[in-house]
Design a protein around this nucleic acid. Structure first.
Lengths: 190, 190
DNA sequence: TCCAATGGTTTTGACACGAAACTATATACA
DNA sequence: TGTATATAGTTTCGTGTCAAAACCATTGGA
């Protein structure tokens, strides 16, 4: 009957969102910018963002239009598939991220001990993973931890994604990917 | 430079919000209902809710209008101060809360161990408290833990709020109050 | 060669949200 | 007793969020 923990999470998320109304951008727009800053090229598409945000594609399409109008992102036609759109941050967009309101939250977090932050991170990661699994949503891990990742042992050659059959630079392999699939055994679903 | 923990929190809050679009109500409207269900009579006002949600009073006023229009809450003129408005849930409002989308999150939480939930709760409470303090926002604790709470030893007489000079029933003293002030020593602010 | 699936956009209608202007009551203070 | 100021709430405005549904183009089967 006590739903205090879920309310705590709701409340915390609400404060974070409330902070994110700065510089004429909305919370969702900020989150979209963050996504484009940390997702690899296979994932920087409207559909990738849609999965990440867990919203409908119509809504995401509008958010992207708003960001493009403000000159923070650019859209280009995808190379192969003529339906696809490739998203990228403009220099102005990268500039905007320097004023990311999430930094305020980081300052709040700095008041916890390192140990507390580690514990919190571990618990929230685990919880988030469980939530996403239950909702059949992608987890967006890094390539280098992905089961489709083929590392070049020597370091001279590019790495490789076995799923998409594409080469990956060192920088690439540290970005988030919508196709991510954990290479370790997943926790069994009860 | 790593903002992963704050992003984790943002992301988690976003999922919770995404779940809260059910039954024609919006996330904020749900949160307002929850508030009215757990706040004492001194706090069930537009300004109390404004502080709780951390939004502007204009926005909150609109949210309340929407809820009133739907017949989920009622507004009555305050007894003493003629400017004040007293908010209450209607039976329909209480009914609506039975379908609270936050229950889905509770189900997710049930997949953690009791120990993990306790730890998570402790960490998040501490963090939330620190955030609210830094933002000079009220903490909304229960009367019985408040420094202004005067308990009736016998249990026969009502308890008492020394700040507002008002009697408190047993049920009252378990509700949240905007005037809450921790009776224990607060952690010193660095 | 259809036809269903996929990637995106548009439209509609309700609401969120801050900012600023506004009303009415309360309180300080002179 | 006024007069200023603070407080409780509402209204208005402009932009954006959001789901739902309709829509368009391309892709990839049968």
């Amino acid at each position: 009957m006590t739903n205090t923990l879920s309310r705590l999470i709701e409340r915390l998320g609400r404060i974070v969102q409330n902070d994110a109304h700065s510089f004429g951008l909305k919370p969702t727009q900020w989150e979209a910018l963050r996504f484009l800053n940390s997702a690899n090229r296979f994932s920087r598409t409207p559909s990738g963002l849609t999965i990440y945000l867990g919203m409908t594609k119509g809504t995401v399409s509008q958010t992207l239009s708003a960001l493009e109008r403000k000159g923070l992102i650019s859209k280009t036609k995808a190379a192969g598939d003529k339906r696809g759109v490739m998203l990228d941050m403009t220099p102005l967009g990268k500039q905007a991220l320097k004023a990311d309101p999430l930094k305020t939250i980081e300052e709040d977090l700095d008041r916890l001990t390192q140990r507390e932050r580690d514990e919190l991170f571990a618990l929230l990661s685990k919880f988030l993973k469980a939530m996403l699994a239950r909702r059949d949503s992608a987890q967006f891990g890094q390539c280098r931890d992905c089961m489709h990742f083929v590392s070049s042992q020597k370091g001279a050659l590019p790495h490789f994604c076995a799923l998409l059959a594409e080469p990956l630079s060192g920088a690439d392999s540290e970005l988030m990917c919508v196709e991510y699939s954990a290479s370790e055994r997943q926790a069994p679903r009860s």
